[in-house]
Amino acid sequence: MTQTDNSNAPRVTIVVSPRERFEQAEMSLASCFEKTDTLFRMIYIDGGTPRAIAHTLKEKVERRGHIYLRRDGFLTPNDARNLALPLIDTEYVAFIDNDVVFQPGWLDALIRCADETGAGLVTPTILVGPAARMPDLSIHHAGGILKVEEDEHGKTMYRRHGFEHTRYLEMKDELKRQETGCTEFHVVLARKAMIDDIGPFDPNLVGFTDEIDMALAARAKGWKIFYEPDSVIAYAVGKRLTWRDRPYFCVRWSPGRVMRAERYFYDKWGLTHDFDRQRNFLRDHRRHAFPMKSMQKIIGWRATVGLTAILCNTVSAISSWRLIRPNPTPQHTRQ
């Protein structure tokens, strides 16, 4: 909801950035406008959205007096977020992906938690599944554990999402506000002072660890991270990828690019290399680009996994020229 009363200036800026696809973007933006009663500013970062979709997004964002920034090439999520940072002059910033949907009161609850706890970061209840079934979905992230432990073999990282894969409506009454170890970038509220303290997002991180890097940096500076159960959003999945989505999806999840970023992250924090989880995710997640469920019944799982990898690598190689090289030294302008 947008208002122009300067005597009641918004306390929060919503920054929208691309995650892995574009076809959900209009639905996500409509959900944000419909389900958000808190006064806010918005900075919408568009990296390579197909022009028919981009035209609609731009019109809806700018008609409400918000900022729409477009780059014709593909952007990594951290690079997109860094583009928005110099324009933020509110107390809080809510980073959201372009493929999430919301329950009413989601932003109020995040801000209330930050006000009452002094947290630098607040994470909502994140569900996963088709948007039409919201909120009768499984929990993806309800707080969780992020620990770095050291022994004679080196430093290892342990991460686990709270209540993952359990049904939200069955567990709803058991979810309590509490300090937590990490967040997810699907939706996260950050205190602007914390962002100023830790600096811009690392442009080298293009895979799985952008939110972990932020959490570790925030904790190193003494900022608390809280989980707020009354804020509920969903990472909307279920719709098949179209040919308009596949180029960005395959570039985004290119194994070579992602695994270079993972090795960089582990070296940055002095962690022992352990990449089984990442490799398994890439193998399984990239199959969304070319599901081939019928073919799997004929040629088997292993063969379809191999064929999917070939197709995704081919699409990525053809489309990688569209990826805008992240700025290695993003400037963070303080307001």
Rank of each mutant, 00 (worst) to 15 (best):
G162I: 05
S17F: 15
E164D: 11
L39Y: 06
P124Y: 04
T183H: 04
R21V: 14
E179N: 02
I310R: 15
C250E: 04
V251E: 01
P328A: 05
P77C: 07
M259Y: 00
R322G: 14
L75R: 11
R334T: 09
E211C: 09
W321T: 10
H161E: 12
M171H: 13
E62G: 12
G222Q: 08
D173E: 15
A215H: 00
M214F: 10
I67C: 07
F226T: 00
R177M: 13
G162Q: 12
L169Y: 07
A30Q: 12
L189F: 10
G118K: 00
P200E: 04
G270L: 08
R21G: 12
G118L: 00
T156G: 02
G162W: 06
D108R: 07
H153R: 10
R160A: 12
G181A: 01
F281G: 12
D202H: 08
I88N: 00
R41Y: 15
P326T: 06
L57D: 07
F33I: 07
I318H: 11
Q296G: 06
G207H: 03
G238M: 03
L39I: 03
I14Q: 06
P10H: 04
M27R: 13
I88K: 02
L169T: 12
V101R: 11
A236R: 11
G199Q: 13
K172N: 09
A215S: 13
E26Y: 00
E91L: 09
E91V: 08
Y168C: 00
D210N: 08
R177C: 05
D72V: 04
R302C: 01
E211N: 03
A193V: 03
E91F: 02
P77V: 01
R177E: 08
I45G: 03
P77A: 05
T333M: 05
E228I: 02
Q335M: 03
L323A: 13
G143Y: 02
N78I: 08
K155H: 11
H66K: 07
M292V: 07
G162P: 01
V12F: 04
M134H: 01
R70H: 05
G143C: 00
F74L: 15
M42I: 14
D136H: 13
P10T: 10
L282Y: 11
M134A: 08
G73S: 06
H140F: 07
R81Q: 04
R19W: 14
V61A: 01
N78W: 10
R64D: 06
A131N: 02
A132G: 06
F275E: 01
F226E: 04
G199A: 13
V93K: 03
R133W: 05
Q178M: 09
Y44I: 11
V16E: 05
W269Y: 15
D89P: 06
I88P: 04
K176F: 08
R219W: 05
E20V: 07
D210Q: 15
V93N: 01
E184C: 14
E62C: 06
V61R: 00
E150Y: 02
P86G: 14
H153Q: 09
D97E: 14
L29M: 13
F33T: 03
W301H: 13
F290E: 09
V61S: 08
A217W: 05
L39E: 14
E59I: 04
I88M: 02
P50T: 11
N327Q: 15
P255V: 06
P203R: 05
N78M: 09
R244V: 14
P10W: 10
G47C: 08
T180E: 12
F22L: 08
R11L: 07
V237W: 01
L75S: 10
H288C: 05
E150A: 12
